[in-house]
Write a protein that binds this DNA or RNA. Structure first.
Lengths: 217, 217
DNA sequence: CGTTAGTTTGACCTAATTCAAATACTGTGG
DNA sequence: CCACAGTATTTGAATTAGGTCAAACTAACG
C-alpha cells in the first residue's frame, strides 16, 4: 500500500502551507478502488485530490452503503473535527492525492489567521453541500435526484456539456439513496426523452440543460 | 414582529463575545410558529437558542419541505458561510433567542484565535450532524429513522427517559423524509412492541433503549 | 362546550425495490 | 488483434415499503 510505504518521509508543518496545494505535503498515487483511509482510523493526515476522483462513504452493519461525497481534482477530503475519520475514502479511478499532516487545534491558533479562515471556509462549503444532499435525499424523486447529480457534476467540471463520469452506477446509486437499477432506468428514460445522451456507460452528454434544471426540484 | 421592533437597539461587537452566550447580543422572544429569518434574506445576525426550540428548513417549488435541523437550548443557528440565509428559521415552541450581529471575515481575522476556533468547531459539528442525516435519509428504513430521531432527542436532552417533544408529527416527518402518516404508524408500532410509550402526543417514554438502539441501523 | 387543528387508523395505490435474465463492456492472455 | 472470462449495466416482471386519500378520533383553545 503506497500510503504506508511513503508516508514516513513526510514532515509538512501546516495544512498544505495554508491549504495551498503547491507547498506542503507529498503526492501519493492510488489505484482504482484502493482505500485511502478507513472509517474509525485516526485522522492524522488531510488530503487534496490532484487528479482522478475519490469517494468517501459510510457503511451500516448489514452492508448498506451511503456515499457522503465525491471529490474531484482540487477538492479536499479527510478533514475531521474529531480525532478519527468518520468515513472511508477510496479512489474511484487511478488518482494522485496530496497528503499532509493535519494541524492540531493549537497549531491552528498559532497559525496566520488566513489559514484558519480558509479551513473554516472549506468546512462551511462542506456543510452547505451536505444540506443540499439532505434535501435531495429527503424530498426529491429518483428522477430529480439523478438530474441533480448530473447538474452538480457538470457545474463542478466547469459546466462541460459532455461529462466523463468516473463513478459506477453503484456509486451513483449509493450517493443518491437509490438502487443501481433505478439509476440505470432513470438515465435510460432521460435519454429516451432526449434530455441526455449516453454514448458510452461512463460518458453522458447533457443535451437539454434547461429541461434537466427543471427536473432538479 | 419582535425582530424588527427590537433589533435596532443592538450593537454587539463580536459573535457573542467569543460565542459565549452571556456576553454579547440581545434576547428576543418568538412565539410558537413565528419566523426568525427567511431563506434568501441577508444573514446579518447569528442566533443561539436560550429556551424553547427552533427548526431550520428549506422548501422546494411545489411546497415539499425538508427540515435541516432542530435547535434546542444552547444550540446555535443562522451561522452562514455566504452572505444570505440558506434556510428559513421558525420557533417550534415559544422561545427565547440570543441574537448578535454576525462577524465579517475580517473581524474574525482580527479576533482572538479561540473565537475562530470555536466557530470552526461549531461548523464541524454541524457538518458531522448533516453527514449522519444523509446516512439516515439515504439508507435507513422508516422505523430506523424514527428510532434514530428518538435516540438523538434523548441524547440531546441529557439522556432523559421521558422526552417532551416540542415538534409536531409533521415536523418529525419533514426531518425524517417521511409522511406524517408513516411517522404516526411507526410510533404506534413501536408502542405496540413495548419499545416506547406515548402517554400524550407530545410526550414519549423510551421504555427499552437497547431495543431502540438496535433499530438505529 | 363547540370549533378547529393535529393525530391516528384504515384502505388502496404507486414509486422504487427486488429478483432474474439478457446484454454490453473491460481487461487479459494467446 | 481476437476470443474469452468476468464484471458492470440494462431491461423485464413481480413485490413491497411507504405514500395517498379518506375518515375517525383527540386535544387544544377561545
Amino acid at each position: 500500500m503506497p500510503f504506508d510505504a511513503e508516508i514516513s518521509e513526510f514532515q509538512a508543518p501546516a495544512l498544505f502551507e495554508g491549504l495551498d496545494a503547491d507547498a506542503g505535503g507529498i503526492k501519493i498515487r492510488y489505484a482504482r478502488e484502493e482505500e485511502i483511509f478507513g472509517e474509525g482510523e485516526p485522522a492524522e493526515y488531510v488530503y487534496q485530490v490532484l487528479s482522478g476522483a475519490v469517494r468517501t462513504y459510510r457503511i451500516l452493519r448489514d452492508g448498506r452503503r451511503q456515499i457522503d461525497e465525491f471529490h474531484f481534482a482540487g477538492g479536499y477530503f479527510g478533514i475531521e473535527g474529531g480525532p478519527d475519520h468518520r468515513t472511508t475514502a477510496e479512489a474511484i479511478a487511478d488518482s494522485t492525492v496530496l497528503v499532509a499532516r493535519r494541524m492540531t487545534a493549537s497549531d491552528l491558533a498559532d497559525q496566520r489567521g488566513d489559514v484558519a479562515r480558509q479551513l473554516l471556509q472549506l468546512t462551511m462549503e462542506g456543510l452547505q453541500r451536505r444540506q443540499d444532499h439532505v434535501v435531495l435525499l429527503g424530498r426529491k424523486s429518483a428522477c430529480e435526484r439523478v438530474a441533480s447529480l448530473l447538474i452538480d457534476l457538470a457545474e463542478r467540471s466547469g459546466c462541460q456539456r459532455t461529462l466523463d463520469v468516473p463513478m459506477s452506477r453503484q456509486d451513483m446509486a449509493d450517493y443518491l439513496g437509490l438502487t443501481i437499477e433505478t439509476v440505470s432506468r432513470t438515465l435510460s428514460q432521460l435519454q429516451a426523452d432526449g434530455v441526455i445522451e449516453i454514448p458510452t456507460t461512463r460518458r453522458i452528454v447533457l443535451r437539454d440543460r434547461a429541461a434537466l434544471a427543471e427536473l432538479v426540484e
